Amino acid sequence: MDYEKIIFTIIAHAGNARSLCFEALKFAKLGDPDKAYEKVSEAKEELLKAHNIQSDMLHTEAAGEKHEFSLLLVHAQDHLMCAMLVKDLVEEFIELYKTIFKTKDHIG
């Protein structure tokens, strides 16, 4: 696979992960933490795929195969890091929504 296709693959997996995390957040808001965690799990799989590609690229470069600086790669890294942050925040929100729904059940 050529260098640009590899970079676009990272972007695609990171974008999929981010979308899945926002789906998880919607399920959490609806009071369905199990479905929310299912979506987070799917997001983690996408992030792992992106991370593995990134790691392969790093190993290749460490072995001496250099690539020209690419704004596209910076963009891919940005997508990946944002998706990772979204995943972490959504996991926290799921726990928050679980607490809110649990409290509502005990009050009402």
Rank of each mutant, 00 (worst) to 15 (best):
I100K: 04
I6G: 05
A36Y: 00
L48P: 03
E4W: 10
H59G: 15
F27N: 10
A83V: 06
M81S: 12
M57I: 11
K39W: 00
F93Q: 08
K35R: 13
I10S: 00
I7P: 02
A12P: 01
M1R: 13
E38T: 12
E68P: 11
E61Y: 10
T99W: 03
A14K: 00
Y97C: 06
N52H: 11
S19W: 03
R18Y: 02
F101G: 03
L96D: 09
T103S: 07
T9I: 05
T60D: 15
K66W: 07
E61M: 14
K104C: 02
D105T: 06
T60R: 15
F101Y: 10
T99I: 13
K87S: 08
M81D: 07
A24Y: 05
K44A: 06
A63P: 03
E61V: 12
M57F: 11
F27H: 13
S41T: 15
F22D: 08
A43S: 15
E4I: 14
V74Q: 07
M1C: 14
E23T: 13
E4G: 12
M1S: 15
G108L: 12
Q77Y: 06
S41R: 15
A36H: 01
A24K: 09
E61H: 12
A14Y: 00
S70F: 07
I53T: 10
H79K: 06
I6A: 09
H67T: 08
Y3T: 08
L25T: 02
K35L: 05
C21H: 03
I107W: 05
E45H: 10
G64H: 03
E61C: 14
V90S: 00
L30V: 08
L20M: 10
I7E: 01
K39C: 02
A43L: 10
V74I: 14
E45S: 14
L20A: 06
M81C: 10
D88L: 04
L85Q: 04
E92M: 14
A50P: 03
V74P: 01
M84F: 12
M81R: 10
H51G: 01
L30F: 08
K98L: 10
Y3Q: 11
S19I: 03
